[in-house]
């Protein structure tokens, strides 16, 4: 798994949110939003993190960029191939701020993530002046260039966010993330709020930009058809843990974990000739405050055995690059 020029290698990432109760605010437990996940990200690669609400995918993305302080773990980042690795979680605030140029994020809600009182030109240019990269007319030129890059006319720089449609705002969000020539962009449900024809425009734009600037994406999403389209590799999360990782083909053609299978079976296929006689998962996702013992999925799993409620299955290889955390996965059977 550890290639010498990987952009990022994350091990044991945990993010717990403590719960305090009573007058003395005693620490009574934790919401284990992310409970020890490992993944790697290559250069110019797109890794999608998928799962249902509350599985910890957004928390994982934000902890990685230290927008939330991780509870434990290590994220080794290698800016250039061959350069020494730095642990993002061990850096001082000051050093981290310098590295933030490389690490950007695009949020889901383009309505909530832009300040309504700041023109989009200033919103995009802000980072350039904060980092002392460009000022005055040079800054304006850079902003125009960025707007053109994301398919907006440069003269919109003086407009305010409310004058834009959802798709255009998301383009502004992308331009903003690109300002500092990052190497990694975390796309947190970046196209979920968009209509399908606009979503396609934005997905194409993300693909073009990846090629042009050699970007790596961590694409956090719940829409599996979008994930299938955009990803190189996929990590499936359930209640704070990664239950399966693999290439997009491995996950979609040969899923091993019962949760991945259920997730795929639940997608409504846009083809009336393929109305499925699917078996659907029963029940809801359990609370991450008191997740089930053993394998977190055993309460909803159609094939769970007795030991699934006692032991936690470890990740094991099914094929090259394909890992699943299930006792019943066909280990090495398909190679």
């Amino acid at each position: 798994m550890s290639a010498p020029d990987n952009l990022l290698e994350v091990t044991g990432l945990k993010k717990y949110f403590p719960i305090y109760r009573g007058i003395l605010s005693r620490h009574v437990g934790d919401v284990k939003a992310v409970d020890g996940i490992d993944f790697t990200l290559g250069r110019q690669e797109t890794l999608s993190v998928v799962g249902e609400s509350g599985c910890g995918k957004t928390t994982a993305g934000r902890s990685l960029l230290r927008l939330l302080t991780p509870t434990a773990g290590e994220a080794l980042y290698r800016p250039e191939p061959g350069a020494p690795q730095v642990n993002l979680f061990g850096l001082s605030e000051r050093k981290m701020r310098a590295l933030r140029r490389d690490l950007q994020i695009i949020f889901q809600d383009p309505y909530g993530s832009l300040n309504p009182r700041i023109t989009v030109g200033n919103a995009i240019g802000e980072a350039l002046s904060v980092h002392g990269i460009a000022q005055g007319s040079e800054l304006e030129d850079r902003v125009s260039e960025l707007l053109r890059l994301v398919g907006l006319r440069p003269d919109v720089a003086n407009r305010f966010p409310h004058e834009f449609s959802g798709g255009q705002r998301q383009r502004v969000g992308i331009a903003r993330a690109l300002t500092l020539r990052p190497k990694l962009i975390v796309c947190d449900e970046a196209v979920s709020a968009l209509d399908v024809s606009i979503q396609a425009q934005v997905l194409n734009l993300l693909g073009d930009l990846q090629e042009e600037f050699g970007l790596s994406y961590i694409f956090i999403a719940h829409d599996l058809s979008v994930v299938k389209y955009i990803s190189d590799r996929v990590a499936v999360m359930y209640l704070g843990r990664i239950v399966e990782t693999g290439t997009v083909e491995q996950i979609f053609e040969n899923p091993q974990h019962p949760y991945t299978k259920a997730l795929l079976a639940a997608i409504p296929v846009p083809d009336p000739a393929r109305r499925s006689q699917r078996v659907h998962l029963e029940g809801d996702v359990p609370s991450p405050i008191s997740p089930p013992s053993g394998c977190h999925f055993h309460t909803r799993c159609p094939v769970a055995e007795e030991r699934c409620s006692r032991e936690t299955p470890a990740m094991q290889a099914c094929e090259e690059g394909h890992h699943a955390a299930c006792f019943l996965a066909e280990v090495c059977s398909s190679t």
């Binding site: 798709g167 399908v196 024809s197 396609a200 997905l203 979008v226 389209y229 846009p270």
Partner: peptide
């Protein structure tokens, strides 16, 4: 045509230009 599901992976999605 703008549905990602129907396009082969990696192919460019067709889009409807402009907006509503």
């Amino acid at each position: 045509r703008s549905l990602p599901d129907l396009a082969g992976a990696g192919e460019r999605l067709e889009t409807i230009p402009g907006m509503v």
